[in-house]
C-alpha cells in the first residue's frame, strides 16, 4: 500500500513551465522557492556571460542566471512580463531569468521520457527528461547542474 502510495506519489509530479524563445521548459516545483517579477540586476565584475548579476530578495543578495544563455540559446530580452524563478539549493538561493512563466502543471511520472543520447554527459545533465504532453513537448530542466556549475564558477 505504502509502495502504491509512494508510487502514486511518484507518479504525480508538479512542474512549473516557462518559455525561452519558442521553446517551453520546466523545473520541478519542489526546487522552486518562489516566483517574482523582473527587476533589474546589479551586474557583477568578471561574471560569466550567463550570470546577469545579483538582486535583492527581501534583504538577501542572490545571483540571477540567464537560463537561455546557460542552455545555449540567444540571450533573453528581459521585459515587464519576464519573471525570475528563485531556486532553493539547500542553503543558497539562485534566481533564473525566464521570458514568461506559463503554467503550473501536474504531470504523471509516466509522462517523463529520457533525453535522447545525442549529447555529451555534461551537456546532457542539464535536461533531466522530456515531458511529452498531447499538445506540447516540455524540456524538464534539472536546476542542480544549471545552478551548481554556476555556483562553482562563482566560487572559483
Amino acid at each position: 500500500m505504502a509502495e502504491d502510495q509512494d508510487t502514486a506519489r511518484e507518479r504525480f509530479i508538479e512542474i512549473i513551465s516557462f518559455h525561452l524563445g519558442d521553446q517551453v521548459y520546466c523545473v520541478d516545483i519542489m526546487a522552486v522557492r518562489e516566483i517574482r517579477g523582473w527587476v533589474p540586476c546589479t551586474s557583477m565584475p568578471h561574471s560569466p556571460p550567463h550570470v546577469l548579476g545579483v538582486i535583492n530578495l527581501r534583504g538577501l543578495v542572490i545571483p540571477v542566471i540567464d537560463v537561455a544563455v546557460r542552455i545555449g540559446l540567444p540571450p533573453a530580452n528581459p521585459s515587464e512580463r519576464s519573471a525570475i524563478i528563485v531556486i532553493d539549493q539547500g542553503e543558497k538561493l539562485v534566481g533564473l531569468l525566464v521570458e514568461a512563466v506559463s503554467d503550473m502543471i501536474t504531470i504523471k511520472g509516466s509522462d517523463l521520457q529520457p533525453v535522447p543520447d545525442v549529447l555529451p554527459e555534461s551537456q546532457r545533465a542539464l535536461a533531466k527528461a522530456i515531458v511529452a504532453l498531447e499538445e506540447q513537448m516540455i524540456c524538464f530542466l534539472d536546476p542542480e547542474p544549471l545552478v551548481g556549475a554556476t555556483l562553482e564558477e562563482l566560487a572559483a
Binding site: 512549473i16 516545483i29 519542489m30 522552486v32 516566483i35 517579477g37 515587464e80 503550473m104
Partner: peptide, 20 residues
C-alpha cells in the same frame, strides 16, 4: 493586465507554497 500578471505570479507562488 499588470494586475493579472501580478495575480498570476502570486497564484504561482501560492501554488509553489502549496506544493511544498
Amino acid at each position: 493586465d499588470e494586475i493579472a500578471f501580478q495575480t498570476n505570479l502570486l497564484a504561482l507562488n501560492a501554488g509553489v507554497e502549496a506544493a511544498r
